[in-house]
């Protein structure tokens, strides 16, 4: 069974997963094996901070600063999104 995501986990996009702007549909997409995730602007921003260096905690902090939101407000949603993508093997930790 899988461990849930922790704040000190460092995530990265593995080879075979690409963040791209789809100019035809005018949206950000995450391309992965046999699947495409349509991303809203916020989800695209979250993923843009996934770089193999920042921890989940760092990503929450960066987003908190960027959106001028208290981190308690966004932490749950950010971790939820990242955890879901890990579960689907789209992100590696």
């Amino acid at each position: 069974m899988r461990e849930v995501l922790r704040l000190d986990d460092v995530l990265r996009l593995p080879r075979g997963v690409r963040l791209r702007f789809d100019e035809v549909r005018v949206t950000h997409v995450l391309l992965a094996p046999e699947r495409t995730f349509d991303l809203d602007a916020v989800a695209a921003d979250v993923l843009s901070f996934v770089d193999g260096i920042r921890s989940v905690d760092d990503i929450v902090a960066a987003l908190s600063e960027k959106y001028l939101e208290d981190r308690a407000v966004i932490e749950h949603d950010v971790i939820g999104l990242l955890d879901e993508l890990c579960r689907k093997r789209v992100l590696d930790r």
Partner: peptide, 11 residues
């Protein structure tokens, strides 16, 4: 699927 969640995605 349950046992391998996060390791192997089974479609």
């Amino acid at each position: 699927r349950k046992a391998l969640e996060g390791r192997l995605q089974i479609d």
